[in-house]
Each structure stands twice: as C-alpha cells, then as structure tokens.
Design a protein around this nucleic acid. Structure first.
Length: 572
RNA sequence: GUGCCCGUAGCUCAGCUGGAUAGAGCAGCGGUUUUCUAAACCGCUGGUCGGGGGUUCGAGUCCCUCCGGGCACGCCA
C-alpha cells in the first residue's frame, strides 16, 4: 500500500532530521498528517510535518521542509518534492508507482486497505438493542445501519468483531407491554377494555393477541394478578416483538452474532457482583438524590437508594443503580452488562445509542473504567433523530405500528441499499431530514445509484473485453505507466487513498467517511469513463493498462460498498 | 438554571486530531451520445462558514461571549 509506504518514508525522514538536530528528539509527531492535496497540481501526496514541527524546533517551517524534502528525494518511488505555501511538502510519485498500486489491489483483493490498529483489542459492537415492545422505526434503522457499518469497518481495521443486540426483556417496559397485550387479548373475547393509557396502542398487538388466543385459547382471560401475567406472557410477547424486529434486520441484511438477554443475565446475579465491586471501591453507596433541577416534580420524596458516585468523576449528580422498588435501573443494568462484555474478553465496546441517552453515557463510561481499570473501553456513538418527509411534507405516522414511521414501510418503498447509503451520507449527530421521494429517485439525488453505477460500468468493460476474446498482453507498471491518462491517474489516486480512509474512519468510528469516499471514487470513475474508450481492439497494450486500473477501482468500490452494507451489482 | 448536539450556497449535506483559493449533490442556466450502460460527463451561476471578540505564521475547525434551533436534566427509557 503506497500510502502507508510514503507515510513511513516521511516518518523515517523526520527521524533523520532528529538525528541531525534539525528537529529536537522526542517531539510529538502525532499531528503530522499525510494527505492528498485538494489541488491536484500540488502533487499526489503532501505533508504538514514542517509546519507542525516549526514551533518545537524553533525554526522556520520552510527550513524544516527543505531538509525533509532533501531526504524524501532519495526515495526511488518519489519523482519530485516541492516545498510550497507556508511549508507544505508536496510529493509527486513516479508514474509507474500508481499503476503498480493497481496490481497490489488485485493481489490483495478485498484485503486491500486492511489496517492493523486493534492493538490486540477485541471489539464487541452493540447496536439496535430496541426494546422488544413493537416495530422498528426509521430512527432505529439509522442506528442499525451505523452499527453494522462500524462493525464491518472495525473488522477491516483489524479487530476481531462480535455483533450483539441487547434484548431488554426484563424491564418495566415489558410489564407495560404485557398489560397492553392482555387488554388486546381480552378485546378478542368481546370484553370492553381499553389499552392502558401508558401502554402500547399499536395495532400490531392485536395480531400478537390473536396468536396468543390461537395458542392458549382463554387460558389468560380470568387472570388478573399482575405478576402471574407478567411471568406467564413475558416470553411470548418478547418473542413476537423480537421477531418483527428481526424481520426488518433481515431485510437490511443485518445478522447479529448474539441476542443477549438481560433477563438471563440477571438470573446469574450480575447486579450483585458489580455493585459489590463498586461498593468496595467506594463508588457505590446508599444515599438520597436531590430533587431534579430545571423542572417541577410535584411528588418528589427523598428516598434512600443505591447510588453510583458519579460526582467523584466531576459529574453533577450521582446515579441510581436500583430504583426504589429494588429493581435495577437502566444505568445499573448497563454497568452489569458492560462488565459482562468485558469478562467475555471484549475490551473495545462501541455502542450506538440515541442522543437522548447521552446523560447516562458519561457515568457509565466512568463506571466501566473503574471496573476494568482501562480507559477507552466504552465507546458511545451517538445518533440523532430522523425526520421523514415526502416532497417536503412530513410523512404521516403509521397507526398500525404505534404512531411511528415504520422502517418496514420505508424499506418496502426504497429498498435496503438506498436506505443504508442515504443514512451513511449524513454524519450521525446531524438531525436528519430524510426525503423518501428523493431517496427513491434514480439520479444523483440518491448517490447510492451513482456509486453502484460506477461499479456496474467497470464490470461492463471487463466483461466486454472478455466477450470480445481479446488476448490482452501482460503489461508491467513500468511499461504501462505512459499509457495512464490523467483521468485514469485521478482514479488511481483515489484508490491509493482507500487504506488511509479506512484507518481514519475506523479510528474515529465514523463509517460515513466511507460513503463519501465511495462517491468521490465513483466520480473519478465516471469522469474517466466519459473521457476514454476502454476496450480498443487496435491497441491491446493500452486496453490492458486501462483494465488494470478499472479492475483496481472496481475492487475498491465494491469493498467500500460492502463495508457500508450496500450491494455492488455487476449490471444495472 | 446546567449539560450535550446543531447553525456552512435557494434546498439536503461534507469538511479528516487548525493548513494552501471553503467543497459535493440537487435546484437554475448552457453544452455533450452514429463508439464499451446518458442512472453518465463538461461548463456557468450561487457563500461576510449565525454575530462579535480572542489565541497564532495560519481559524469553518480551538477559547470566550451573544443569537437562533433541537435534545436531555427523578428512581423513566
């Protein structure tokens, strides 16, 4: 991978400068960036090293830049080095280096761009984790898409990755679900009862109630005891709701390695274990919380609760681990769950969470750090809501699904590929305006087709050459470099950057960078396609070179789409 | 009152731990196909990066402040 090679050469050059005393020993090189200049005329790659090091070295940036340039010129792969602007070092590669990269792509296949940044860590990516109380809405879909892409991205970056869904099958919401289901069930027998005001009004529960009736007949009709109903119907209700969720995940092509049952976890005394651990560290104690700030709470009563000492970490308030009824809070349960993940051998734990849960993310991070003795284990990835529109008008909510915009409906309308790519073209912390009419269009308004089309075109030219039975000669990079026209070189430059994009995106848990990269590469491909005729029986050498470049671009495009969870069709 | 997210072209959005002349798509205007897929390509128009101050060689990016929008702020989820 030439990008990594050149970066290594630059870092080695800086070491030489350190040895020569141009730059002091032991300076922080983490801010040194190697990137492709925005302006193509500035060269193929550039570094800001001289400007970053100017201050610690006490020298003018251009002085350092010239010294570095001198070192870089010794490398045979580098054709020219220029110092420009405030102190950029611009690097021009030998023409054959870019073409050689195409061969490297083909040799590596989908391993091209694979990074090794795990540092021995094992990742467990938790995403979706919707309460199994009803259908999936579009916002959840955003979570699913990002989580799945993060998992694929981390694998690409060299992590062992485990995909997990936390099934919240033990909390208060399940009690509410069971009460709602029971009301629907009684309605089926002609009773005049309403779904509880705080319950789930969606009509999907009617169908689940019918299934219950089909299985058990009137077995539960006369049961009124809350606990008996909960124990009796909990598993059934959860299973039915989870099946709806799984059907949507299936449509998105998402498969989890594990559905982790909170209920099962609690059977093992997980809460007692973590509470004891934290109590021993002085981080859990019995106490009372002050009344909530910023809003009036009429029924506030100071009650002694089991609290996590979040204030020890500079947070404004401690957090309850158990509620006044003695059941684990969400926060308490999360502590136990994350300790469980860690005990299973996973020490890098990205979790895609709703931005509204950010309040508990901070104390949880401290709790996890306290228990594991490591920092950076818990990695919350926040995502914002999605406003679904159609031609600028808000889409009406599905009554059947419980007054949400159901993901299922959206997927039926636009398909998984368009949905996933659309989600990934907006970074997750932006409140998203998602227009169904535009997402359905097969134009640049919907970039997934643009990218897929580039891939299909590249497949087409390879197919064309094969079907024509052309005997294409083997052309080495050195021989073929002169045949690479600027538009093809632009494609290769994008290809070359793929490893850098993967690494950067993985480090920051930002898969949307891959989606934007895919669009840029596709753009270079389309421009090139319009510029040159690929298959030319009268010039087999040039045809061979073009197809080498096309193949490399095709492989990288397909891989970027794969990480995004989007298909790469060979024909469109 | 406190915290978090956001504010970039008419619209939807990028902008990599501060870097070169702030980008893309759509919308608008004008071109390109007897040739491998026009779901494409090429060009033009469009910005005081919410306002102000500061830090420095350099700020859309960092700090302060104000304005505007969203979210969170019990033991809920």
């Amino acid at each position: 991978m030439i990008y990594n090679d050149i970066r290594s050469v630059i870092l080695a050059g800086l070491e030489v400068l350190q040895a020569a005393g141009v730059v002091p020993q032991g300076v922080d090189l983490s801010a040194v960036v190697v990137e492709a200049p925005k302006e193509a005329s500035h060269g193929d790659l550039a570094t800001n090293a001289a400007m970053v090091l100017a201050k610690p070295a006490g020298k003018a940036p251009r002085v350092i830049a010239e010294a570095l340039a001198e070192e870089l010129r010794k490398d045979a792969r580098i054709a020219a080095v220029e110092v420009a602007g405030p102190g950029f070092v611009n690097i021009r590669l030998q023409p054959e280096v870019l073409l050689a990269e195409a061969a490297e792509v083909m040799a590596a296949g989908r391993e091209y761009g694979k990074a090794g940044i795990s540092g021995g860590r094992k990742a467990l990516v938790e995403y979706v984790s919707i309460n199994p109380t009803g259908p999936v809405h579009v916002g959840h879909g955003r979570n699913a898409v990002f989580g799945d892409a993060i998992a694929a991205l981390l694998e690409k970056a060299g992590f062992p990755v485990y995909r997990e869904y936390l099934v919240n099958d033990a909390g208060n919401q399940i009690r509410v679900l069971v009460r709602s289901l029971h009301a629907r069930y009684r309605q089926l027998f002609g009773e005049d009862v309403a779904v509880p005001a705080d319950g789930y009004p969606g009509e999907y529960l009617v169908e689940i109630a019918e299934a219950l009736k089909a299985r058990d007949d009137d077995k539960w009709l006369a049961v009124t005891d809350e606990n008996e109903l909960f124990e009796g119907l909990r598993a059934f209700a959860v299973e039915k709701c989870l099946a709806m969720i799984q059907a949507d995940m299936e449509t998105l092509g998402i498969r989890f390695d594990n559905y982790f049952s909170e209920h099962a976890m609690h059977q093992t005394g997980a809460m007692d274990e973590v509470v004891a651990m934290l109590r021993e560290k002085g981080l859990v104690y019995e106490g009372t919380l002050p009344p909530p700030k910023g809003k009036e709470v009429a029924d506030y009563q100071p009650v002694e609760l089991t609290l996590f000492r979040a204030t020890a970490f500079g947070l404004p308030e401690d957090q309850a681990v158990y509620n006044r009824e003695g059941r684990p809070t969400y926060f308490g349960q999360d502590i136990a769950y994350h300790w469980n993940k860690f005990r299973r051998g996973y020490d890098y734990l990205p979790v895609v969470i709703d931005v509204r849960q950010v309040g508990s993310a901070k104390p949880l991070g401290f709790a996890v750090e306290a228990m594991t003795g490591k920092s950076g284990v818990y990695q919350p990835v926040l995502y914002e809501m999605v406003n679904v529109m159609r031609d600028g008008v808000p889409v009406k909510l599905s009554k059947r699904a419980g007054n949400i915009v159901a993901l299922k409906d959206v997927l039926e309308e636009i398909g998984s590929d368009a949905f996933r790519f659309s989600m990934l073209t907006v970074k997750p912390t932006t409140i998203m305006v998602f227009d169904l009419a535009k997402a359905a269009e097969k134009t640049m308004e919907n970039p997934v087709f643009y990218v897929q089309y580039a891939h299909a075109r590249l497949c087409a030219v390879r197919r064309m050459a094969t079907e024509a039975g052309l005997m294409l000669p083997e052309v080495s990079a050195g021989q073929g470099a002169a045949r690479v026209k600027p538009a093809a070189a632009a494609v290769l430059k994008q290809v070359m950057l793929y490893p850098a994009v993967v690494e950067q995106a993985a480090r920051k848990l930002e898969p949307h960078r891959l989606a934007f990269y895919a669009q840029e590469l596709a753009g270079a491909v389309h421009s090139w396609y319009a510029d040159e005729k690929f298959v030319d029986a009268d010039d087999l050498v040039a045809t061979s070179v073009r197809l080498q470049v096309a193949d490399a671009a095709r492989v990288v495009l397909a891989d970027a789409l794969r990480v995004c969870g989007v298909s790469a069709p060979e024909r469109m």
